[in-house]
């Protein structure tokens, strides 16, 4: 499912958080939204999933204008914090979120089993979340967002506070999900993660400063590091177009 973002702006209490952003994410790719914290990545994701409406411009998912209630079935969303119920077991958490997507009982059981295997939590499925470690919560949160086999998956800073080994595992899981044809949009402020993605959108102070395939972006730099593009943008004091 491709995503078209056309001239989107959004303000909160007169402060412009997203400034006239236009770009298209093609179907079946991993696109990363890269930018320092506070640059507007989460707001952009919330606009794309239709949690909030844009002030100007519009967003289309597979040519359907967002926000749209029906599209929510095709969207997977993993919020920044773990957003799981502490007093429920891993299994019950998944069953609950799966139930909201109106999966049939047998389908739900099958999917719960599958995603638990994918994130390697099968043996902990009966444990309450309050006894989970941070990394386990992250993985279960990912599992909850892909239960209903979404066409497009939004991940808001999925690797924050995660050790390098687990980060590797999680990225492998993303690649695995991509293979099934899912479009993945992942926001991050860890510049190294950009190499895992097909495309990267660099966001700085609410503006899109660069959007291209990762390969091409890295060629624009002297050192092969993405930070440089941000440093260039900040020294110019604004937007590159």
């Amino acid at each position: 499912m491709d995503i078209k973002i056309s001239n989107v702006s959004k303000s909160f209490e007169k402060k412009e958080v997203i400034k006239d952003i236009t770009f298209t994410i093609p179907s079946g790719e991993i696109c990363c939204l890269l930018g320092p914290s506070g640059s507007g990545k989460t707001t952009l994701i919330r606009l794309m999933i239709g949690a909030i409406a844009a002030d100007t411009g519009h967003i289309q998912l597979a040519n359907i204008k967002m926000p749209n209630l029906k599209m929510l079935k095709k969207i997977g969303y993993m919020p920044q914090n773990d957003a799981l119920y502490d007093d429920l077991s891993a299994e019950s958490n998944l069953r609950f979120f799966g139930g909201l997507y109106q999966l049939s009982k047998s389908k739900l059981e099958q999917r719960v089993k599958e995603v638990l295997e994918l994130v390697d939590l099968t043996e902990h499925r009966k444990k309450l979340i309050r006894n989970f470690s941070g990394g386990m919560k992250k993985r279960l949160s990912l599992a909850a967002s892909i239960l209903h086999q979404p066409d497009v998956l939004f991940l808001d800073e999925p690797t924050v506070g995660i050790d390098p080994v687990l980060r590797r595992t999680i990225w492998d899981q993303f690649q695995e999900i991509k293979k099934s044809g899912t479009t993945i949009i992942v926001s991050t402020h860890v510049m190294d993660e950009v190499t895992e993605c097909d495309k990267a959108a660099l966001i700085y102070n609410g503006s899109l400063i660069e959007y291209d395939s990762v390969e091409k972006l890295l060629k624009k730099t002297n050192t092969g590091r993405v930070e440089e593009l941000f440093l260039m943008a900040s020294s110019r004091g604004g937007v590159v177009k």
Binding site: L69, K70, Y77, Q80, D82, A83, D86, F97
Partner: peptide
């Protein structure tokens, strides 16, 4: 505060 409501609202529930 835990964000579960946000996640809940991103499912097709009314």
């Amino acid at each position: 505060s835990g964000g579960t409501l946000e996640r809940l609202m991103m499912t097709p529930i009314k």
